[in-house]
Design a protein around this nucleic acid. Structure first.
Length: 650
DNA sequence: CGGCAGCCTG
DNA sequence: CAGGCTGCCG
């Protein structure tokens, strides 16, 4: 039996420890809420998290954001019009003319138990299969040799080809395989240094809080800087409009002739990597930076606005800290709260009168640029991580160093609530709000290294040029993004969920159902939902691997010899193909970590193919196994209940 | 048998 | 992307 012995006993057959198969250890059978098959129960909103997300409803910030002046003056599009469009043929529908896919066909693994003829004999049915596969693979290959950059061997693999990263693809990650642990833990563990595992949960929590706060503080500071810029003389005029600056839409989409030119000219500092203000890195501009702005002649109106904003931000931070503490560390939170009465109490008063939350920047507030600190890339299994690569993946390169100096909790290091995080994330990273990441430039200089991975990229910025219809935004749908959209537990997955799942893919390729549950809190899980989600990821993976394989083969054909030289960079074709698939709007800054994973995948495929392993029906399994170990922790922002809906609007 | 991965197809 | 199907595991 077993003509194709490989099949019957797959080398990497599904073993419990094989993430590729037996995984999902955690899921102790029990289906969560699925008391019933997800039907019926118009479950009520999940208020559990409400406490954390309270208030920001009519925040000044939101108003400000919705204020045309802001988006207008900072329209990043005008600053970085040069972003490249994305759009590649997707492996799937590439013509499938036969070529010399002979070998190609060999790769595809034949369905295991397909009628097995005697030892490798062509058997009608088998041939059918082979033909089909062959066609498929050929089409893929065909596709790759077509449009893809005919450039040098590096084919989209970033100019990095030249550099010789000797560290070929076959990293020795094997040994490190951890026994399957409940996702949560696993994730955290992978996330690495985050919090000392094993220590008291509090310690861990605090540590995390500290880092988070630090992060938040930096964001605040940065935001302030941005704000100052917004109010610089050039645009101040807009604001001057009058006391009713709160009135959004001072300028309509129509009246923004300057969008592409003037604005750009006005913001020379765009040069700064992430739009960070070059001048003034000065610590804490909470109150000071304004001075600078004023000095420059900031109109009083703007000044007021500025101050109000700052105060509000401070309030927000405060609230975040408190709320987080409350949830993370109840006891401590208790004390804290006693010391500091209502979080944000003070800030509240600052809200502008007519504070109506309008849906801001329409098409622009996806959670893209999620504000949470990109989970620093967990060290690769082998611990050696793609070390050498680090240098090329600028963002992450600088990430870790961040490890904030400890800050007393009092200061409240906090894990920004998802919402808050998003708020900041959007403010900071969102294209409209400026801070256009400087194109390709030394990203390491981002205000906060953490942001390196979660910020909008140039291309993204570009994308946002067209949207911004300012008008269409439902007037009343003031379902301000800042506010929490009522969280109804969905009984079905929505397009928003799909989008979210895709973005999550950048962090995890093999999410367990447990993890999925923890990230899709607004979904009433049932077997169906779970399956669908899992299916989604399965599909994502399929696409991902197909793409990578395609490029790996292409590289091979082009004569690349050093697997290590294959690296996926932001501007590589491969990345673009993937990005357009999982991040169509390109409004989400893909974590650098993803590039590492992609690079490794590419190298693995490359090496495997080169070694002729693709003759083995299940030659991909080993690769899957490797890749499955590279999942990263998914930013908590993704847990934001409203995030799914939020994505819909983007 | 249920859950899930992966392949294939539409 | 969803369905269908096979195969493996617990």
């Amino acid at each position: 039996m077993i003509p194709y012995q490989l099949q019957g006993s797959p080398p990497v057959s599904r073993r419990k420890d094989d993430p590729t198969d037996g995984r999902r250890a955690p899921e102790q059978g029990r289906d969560p809420a699925a008391s019933g098959h997800g039907q019926g129960l118009k479950t009520e909103p999940c208020f559990q998290r409400d406490s954390l997300l309270s208030s920001p409803g009519v925040s000044l910030v939101s108003q400000l954001l919705s204020h045309t002046v802001v988006s207008r003056s900072l329209d990043p599009c005008t600053l970085f019009p040069s972003s490249q469009p994305v759009g590649l043929p997707q492996g799937y529908e590439l013509g499938a003319p036969p070529g010399e896919g002979a070998q190609a066909l060999a790769l595809t693994r034949t369905r295991a138990l397909a009628p097995v003829p005697c030892a490798g004999d062509r058997e009608p049915l088998a041939d059918e299969h082979l033909r089909a596969k062959r066609a498929r693979v050929e089409s893929i290959i065909q596709g790759m040799s077509l449009p893809t950059t005919p450039q040098a061997p590096d084919t989209g693999m970033e100019g990095g080809v030249g550099q010789d990263r000797e560290k070929g693809g076959e990293v020795s990650w094997e040994g490190k395989r951890k026994p399957r642990v409940p996702q949560q833990q696993r994730g955290a563990g992978v996330a690495g240094q985050g919090a000392p595992r094993g220590g008291s949960p509090h310690a861990a929590g605090c540590q995390q809080l500290k880092e988070q706060l630090c992060f938040l503080e930096q964001q605040l500071r940065w935001l302030q800087e941005r704000f100052s810029q917004v109010c610089d003389p050039g645009d101040a005029a807009q604001t001057q409009g009058g006391a009713e600056k709160a009135q959004p839409l001072a300028g309509k989409a129509g009246d923004r002739p300057d969008r592409d030119g003037a604005a750009a000219a006005r913001h020379p500092h765009k040069a700064a990597p992430w739009g960070s203000t070059p001048e003034e890195d000065g610590p804490d501009g909470m109150q000071e930076d304004e001075g600078r702005g004023d000095a420059g002649g900031l109109p009083s109106a703007a000044r007021v606005l500025s101050q109000a904003l700052k105060r509000e931000l401070a309030g927000v931070t405060s609230r975040v800290v408190d709320s987080v503490l409350t949830s993370v560390w109840p006891k401590a939170a208790g004390h804290l709260l006693q010391q500091h009465p209502g979080p944000g109490a003070g800030a509240r008063g600052e809200h502008f009168p007519a504070g109506k939350c309008r849906k801001p920047l329409t098409k622009s507030s996806p959670m893209g640029t999620l504000g949470s600190p990109p989970p620093e890339a967990p060290p690769l299994p082998s611990g050696k991580s793609l070390g050498p690569h680090a240098s090329s993946f600028s963002p992450k390169a600088a990430r870790n160093p961040h490890q904030a100096p400890s800050v007393g909790y009092t200061l409240g290091s906090a894990i920004p609530s998802a919402q808050e995080s998003r708020l900041l994330g959007q403010l900071l990273g969102y294209g409209h709000w400026g801070s256009p990441p400087a194109p390709q430039r030394h990203p390491p200089e981002a205000p906060d290294p953490h942001w390196g991975a979660t910020r909008l990229r140039p291309s993204a910025v570009r994308q946002q040029r067209c949207p911004l219809p300012l008008g269409p935004s439902e007037p009343g749908a003031a379902a301000c993004w800042l506010s929490l959209t009522p969280r109804h537990i969905q009984e079905a997955l929505t397009p928003g969920h799909l989008k979210k799942a895709k973005l999550m893919f950048f962090f995890t390729r093999y999410p367990s159902s447990a993890l999925l549950r923890s990230y899709f809190l607004d979904v009433q899980f049932s077997r169906c939902i779970t399956s669908q989600l899992i299916k989604w990821f399965s599909n994502f993976r399929e696409f991902y691997y197909i793409q990578v394989e395609k490029f790996a083969r292409q590289a091979l054909l082009e004569g690349v010899t050093d697997a290590g030289a294959l690296r996926v960079s932001w501007d590589s074709e491969l990345f673009r193909a993937l990005n357009t698939h999982y991040n169509k709007g390109n409004d989400f800054q893909v974590p650098g970590r993803f590039l590492e994973v992609a690079s490794l995948t590419l190298q693995e495929f490359f090496s495997a193919v080169r070694a002729g392993k693709d003759a083995d029906p299940s030659w991909k399994k080993p690769i899957y196994k490797i890749i499955s170990k590279l999942d990263s922790h998914i930013p908590d922002v993704f847990k934001a209940v409203g995030c799914s809906q939020e994505l819909l609007r983007s």
